[in-house]
């Protein structure tokens, strides 16, 4: 048992109150670029939707953390939570690279940050009056179904991301990769003459 943030994307109006509420509560000021929940939208096509940590059962961010700053835990109310310990985080951004839905954020020169469900009473949900964000108690059966769907989504996402990313990474970082070890000294060039010795 335990609650999870559930998104009804058809209801999102693109008002971004969730971003404002989250940043207001977490950062002490309205600064949506530092919100843990982020909205993407396409005004011309008339859609928008929020994106936030799913608090997965098998998180991809957790195993990649070199200092074990990310752990599986529960809110005081018993809701599943993937917790990121800011004190332990060294700001290596591996978790950000790992998350297929882009749910972990970093702010310039800061450590990783992610949704912590506000300890069991998420501000974004409280300030979504249009019925897009919900914080709902899920039965064990629903939890299991959800986990399975997340797994399928992540597997699909991993393949897609790999396809799109490998070439880009090669393009952008192969130069750096080639410079990690100094190449061996070049062999001395032997002088070659094309003219026959007249003597």
């Amino acid at each position: 048992m335990g609650r999870a943030i559930v998104i009804d994307e058809r209801k999102c109006t693109g008002c971004r109150s969730c971003e404002l509420a989250c940043s207001g509560a977490k950062e002490g000021e309205f600064i949506p670029d530092r919100s843990r929940i982020r909205v993407i939208s396409n005004a011309l096509k008339g859609w928008s939707r929020p994106s936030v940590c799913l608090q997965c059962e098998e998180p991809m961010c957790m195993p990649v953390c070199p200092v074990q700053a990310i752990s599986k835990t529960k809110t005081p109310g018993g809701d599943p939570l993937i917790y990121l310990d800011q004190d332990k985080c060294i700001g290596c951004h591996r978790c950000i690279v790992a998350c297929p839905v882009g749910a972990i954020e970093f702010f310039p020169k800061l450590k990783s940050v992610k949704c912590d469900l506000c300890g069991g009473s998420p501000k974004c949900v409280q300030f979504c009056f249009y019925g897009c964000l919900h914080f709902i108690d899920l039965s064990e059966e629903e939890q299991a179904k959800r986990s399975k769907k997340i797994k399928t989504l992540f597997n699909k996402a991993a393949v897609e991301i790999a396809k799109q990313e490998t070439y880009r990474r090669r393009k952008d970082f192969s130069l750096g990769a080639s410079e990690v070890t100094p190449p061996p000294p070049e062999k001395e060039k032997v002088e070659v003459s094309f003219f026959k010795d007249k003597t």
Binding site: R10, K11, T13, G14, C15, R16, S17, L20, G46, W47, S48, F127, C128, F129, Y130
Partner: peptide, 20 residues
């Protein structure tokens, strides 16, 4: 109407309609 829209930062009485 295909969806409801709202202006930036309008939490309560968003009143825009997206039509097709």
């Amino acid at each position: 109407t295909t969806s409801d829209r709202a202006c930036y930062g309008c939490p309560i009485c968003g009143c825009s309609k997206f039509v097709e």
